[in-house]
């Protein structure tokens, strides 16, 4: 029984992180919320538009599970600069370097809220 609960929680977690992704044969939009809110990884762009296959990233860099990387203590910009995670390609040669064009991947709290369908709380003086 306990195992079933854990599996359910895991599935719920995956669904939550994956958000409203319209995943075809890939993972759709992945919103990373740790260590900062939030970063959007688009499978659409990387798989459908750029033509990478699953093994390009899911062969050591990332597990086939949304949110798994965020559990690791080293899922940081520092790791990326050292060639880890996204930094394996985003090194300034294969793709734009991880320490440039910040807001290309960082969608922020605003972008994440939009993805969740939340509207911003309006400030009182508008």
């Amino acid at each position: 029984m306990k195992n079933v609960t854990i599996i359910c929680l895991l599935l719920a977690g995956v669904a939550l992180v994956a958000g409203s992704a319209t995943a075809g044969d890939h993972g759709g939009d992945i919103h990373f919320t740790r260590p900062v809110e939030a970063v959007l990884f688009s499978h659409d762009i990387h798989v459908d538009q750029l033509g990478f296959d699953c093994d390009s990233c899911h062969d050591g860099l990332f597990e086939y599970e949304a949110g798994a990387a965020e559990q690791n203590g080293d899922f940081t910009m520092e790791s990326l600069y050292g060639g880890g995670y996204c930094g394996a390609c985003h090194d300034g040669e294969t793709a734009f370097a991880s320490d440039t064009r910040c807001a290309t991947c960082h969608e922020g709290v605003k972008g994440y809220n939009r993805a969740l369908g939340k509207t911003e709380t309006a400030a009182s003086h508008h």
């Binding site: 900062v36 809110e37 939030a38 910040c102 807001a103 960082h106 922020g108 709290v109 972008g111």
Partner: peptide, 9 residues
């Protein structure tokens, strides 16, 4: 301004 990622910390 180009460093801001809207994490809103």
């Amino acid at each position: 301004v180009d460093r801001c990622i809207d994490c809103e910390r």
